[in-house]
Design a protein around this nucleic acid. Structure first.
Lengths: 219, 219
DNA sequence: CAATGTAGTAATCGACTGATTACAAAGTCA
DNA sequence: TGACTTTGTAATCAGTCGATTACTACATTG
């Protein structure tokens, strides 16, 4: 049922049928994360987002008002996806290794959920770009608010103390950096890079290597 | 003597005197770090760099060939400054707290050297921008190479094992993120942000608060 | 069916930006 | 001094991009 709905949507997209503005917005946001993630806020063009979403450039501008609003909506979407992934991982009641504490198990699940977000193409990179735009009046404020929200999740919902939360976020920032750097492109060719990569993705390595496209998405 | 040399250079700049191309290049690189750091690679303009350096826009382009080459030179400069700061901190023989091991003392000095680089305005942010441009043919390759060089410093020169080096770099990425986010702008106004900030800069807090300009450099 | 609203595009415009050209002024040195 | 090199700018161009306008086609409802 869920499946047939998705297929019906795909068919509608394929056949050039008209969609509700809400569905188009969601579709454009997916494209926006991919494009903003690869090119950054200034480097991305509304035309590129439009082509990736299969609509015309003026329509993107009309649906979101401006490129800036589109970017704000994209990072809002990215943060919502991240937090909902974290909450699902935190609530997960599936049996875990009895040798580790429930807290450790939850931390592992949430870390995994963070890495799994690479499947939403450009999500990590778009957020990282937003975090670098602290000087921008609107984007900087939104980025700080989102960052604080994630911090509060670790402290309040997950129950980490300040040092644990800091270490958790630090690992996350390193992972995001490695994704943005496309270190995966050099994996296997340089032993130093391979070591660095293995150290960052100890358990998820096969998954990461499979999901991250290698040598594509070039400028 | 070193001072008088610097003063002479400042006088020369002040009076609109002509400089050697090498001096101009160094001067433009400082301006480039500030501008690229605040606006990113695509968002920055060669004209803004030129005005910040006190020269005309065509001259910036001619001295570096292209905006792309200017950015590559800027991140090369940033990495050289960072590594020379690290090496100086590692070689520092001043007496340290006898309660901690020499290795711990060296790690503390190097962490301090990293934070001290905020005094070179835009350095951390420019590097972070470069790390996000992994998809760019030239910039991505240079960024990966620089990142690998830093990794090798921690592993080979500093003697950390892979896990320690990873944790060290993770903390560094978090610090860079907080600088790019301008979290300092909200310091004191939001208790959550204040806690986050204190957790990241436990010892250097007064220094960081003093050096990072608050509420300026806006778009 | 007529009327009204909604989804979507083609054409285009004005502002911006990196790069080029042509030129001027200052220094260098035989 | 006069030829040559180096530092530096003014003017401008060609391309790009976000936004606007004006329009068409489909859908919904009374």
């Amino acid at each position: 049922m869920g499946d047939s709905g998705v297929v019906a949507l795909d068919d509608a997209i394929e056949s050039g049928k008209r969609l509700s503005s809400g569905e188009r917005r969601r579709q454009i946001l997916v494209a926006a994360l991919a494009v903003f993630g690869a090119r950054g806020y200034e480097g991305a063009t509304t035309d590129e987002v439009a082509r990736a979403a299969g609509v015309s450039q003026p329509y993107v501008v009309r649906l979101f008002g401006s490129k800036e609003n589109l970017f704000l909506a994209a990072i809002e979407d990215a943060l919502a996806r991240m937090l909902s992934g974290f909450r699902a991982a935190l609530a997960d009641e599936s049996p875990h290794d009895p040798d580790i504490t429930p807290e450790k198990a939850a931390a592992k699940r949430i870390g995994q959920a963070y890495v799994d977000l690479i499947e939403v193409r450009g999500l990590h990179q778009t957020l990282a770009h937003a975090y670098l735009l602290g000087s921008h009046p609107a984007i900087g404020a939104a980025a700080r608010k989102g960052f604080a929200t994630v911090w509060r999740f670790f402290r309040d919902e997950m129950g980490l103390d300040a040092d644990e939360a800091r270490a958790f976020m630090a690992e996350g920032m390193l992972i995001s950096t490695m994704i943005g750097l496309r270190i995966v492109d050099d994996y296997g060719s340089d032993p130093q890079i391979t070591e660095l990569f293995r150290s960052c993705f100890p358990s998820e390595l096969p998954h990461v290597l499979e999901v991250l496209p290698r040598g594509v998405d070039r400028f």
